[in-house]
Simulated assay, not measured.
Amino acid sequence: MTQYVRDIMTGHPVTVEPLTSVRAVARLMRDQDLGAVLVTEGDRLRGLVSDRDLVVRALAEDGDPDDTTVAGACSEDLVTVGPDDTLDDAVRLMREHSVRRLPVVEDGRHPVGIVSLGDMAMERDERSALADISAARPNQ
């Protein structure tokens, strides 16, 4: 049976505007237990920022987290999938582009979710180490 991205994606993704401070995004990620948020302008997807992006592209550059905006820390050259794409297509894209998360968009630009490598692992092999780690409660 064919499985689709919509079946396992995290819907209603958390989004921020490009001028949101790195500190505000980091707190949002902490408070909502997120590894990534989407950066949008209006209803258009502009980028994705992960917790690693905040560290490597913002904090490691000695920027003030209150003055540095997420626009400079997010990945902008995104690979996306649609909710009606198959999981096989999503896996192929993750492999080809070496990414761990894919924004899910409708009409080529409107974000409706995120699908992650952890989501795939839990769906494909719930007994795998990655599935266990992805399903575990976060460190406090």
Rank of each mutant, 00 (worst) to 15 (best):
A73Q: 08
D107G: 14
I133L: 06
T68Q: 06
P65T: 12
R6G: 06
E76F: 00
A90G: 15
D7A: 08
A135V: 06
D132L: 02
L54V: 08
A121P: 14
R46N: 07
M94C: 07
S21M: 05
E76T: 08
R30V: 07
V16S: 10
E41L: 02
D85K: 10
D43C: 01
D51N: 11
S134V: 02
V105I: 10
E41R: 10
R109T: 11
G72N: 06
R27H: 06
M120I: 09
P83T: 10
V112A: 10
L87W: 05
Y4D: 02
A24E: 11
A135N: 13
H97R: 11
M9W: 02
R52N: 10
V104P: 13
V91Q: 15
V79Q: 13
A24F: 01
D125N: 12
L34I: 06
S75A: 11
D43I: 01
R27F: 01
M29E: 12
R23E: 13
E17T: 09
L34K: 10
Y4C: 08
E76S: 14
E123H: 11
L38V: 05
C74R: 08
M120N: 11
L45E: 00
H110S: 12
E106N: 09
D64K: 05
D33H: 10
A58W: 00
P65D: 12
V56Y: 06
L48R: 11
P65E: 14
D132K: 04
P103H: 15
L54E: 15
G72M: 07
Q140P: 06
A71W: 03
R46L: 04
D77S: 11
R137D: 13
G63M: 02
C74D: 13
D67C: 02
E61D: 09
R109C: 03
D31H: 07
G11A: 09
V14T: 15
H97P: 15
L78H: 05
I114W: 03
P13E: 15
D119M: 03
L78A: 12
L45D: 00
M120T: 03
S116N: 08
L93C: 10
V25E: 12
R101Q: 13
L93D: 04
T20K: 09
R46Q: 09
D88H: 09
S134R: 07
P18M: 13
V49A: 11
H110F: 02
T69V: 01
G108M: 05
A58L: 01
T15W: 02
R27S: 12
V99P: 15
V99G: 15
